Amino acid sequence: MKSTARLLTARASTYLQQLCKHFGHKVPVEFTAHEGHITLPFGTCALRADEAGLTLINICEPENIEKMEKVIGDHLARFAFREEFSLTWQRDG
């Protein structure tokens, strides 16, 4: 199953790198300033940063989709605490 969310922000690259560095202490990650990939035990998250925002794409088994959305969303909220936002996840599959 796949779920996607987009955060409109000028700090997309910063948040991408913060998320990847944070998770990198515990799980495999790969990232550049504009793309990242986090491999959690229950799914993966692809991240893409551009000038307008940050796109998050979770891929996992259907029974883990809510957990993926919560884990990634909660961690992003910690780093983006200066911004008011809410993520709306769109699910496919």
Results as ranks from 00 to 15, higher is better:
R78V: 06
R82A: 05
N64W: 06
P41Y: 07
N64A: 12
V71S: 10
R78T: 12
L19Q: 01
A46Q: 03
I59M: 07
F31R: 11
G93L: 08
Y15K: 04
I65R: 15
F23Y: 10
W89T: 04
F81Q: 02
T39M: 14
R78K: 14
V29K: 07
L54E: 04
T88I: 06
A46S: 08
F23H: 03
K2Q: 11
T44Q: 11
E61I: 01
C60Q: 15
D74W: 12
C20R: 02
L47W: 02
R6M: 04
S13R: 01
G43S: 11
V27R: 04
A12G: 13
M1W: 07
L47H: 04
D50P: 13
S3L: 10
I57P: 01
R6S: 07
C45K: 07
A49C: 10
Q17M: 07
E69Q: 15
L47A: 05
T44E: 14
L47G: 05
F81H: 10
L56A: 04
E66H: 05
Y15S: 05
E69F: 08
T32Y: 04
K67V: 14
A80S: 04
A5L: 12
E83H: 09
A10M: 00
H34D: 08
C60D: 14
L54G: 01
R91K: 09
C60W: 14
M68I: 13
K70H: 08
H37M: 09
R91T: 14
R6A: 05
G24P: 00
G43P: 08
L87P: 08
T55C: 13
C45H: 00
P62Q: 13
V29A: 06
S86L: 01
K26A: 11
I59R: 09
I38D: 10
T44N: 10
T88K: 10
I65F: 11
L54I: 03
T32N: 04
L87I: 04
E84T: 12
T32V: 03
S3K: 11
C20E: 10
W89I: 07
W89N: 04
E84S: 12
Q17E: 11
R6G: 01
K67W: 10
L16S: 02
E63R: 14
A80E: 03
Q17R: 13
G73K: 08
D92E: 13
I65M: 15
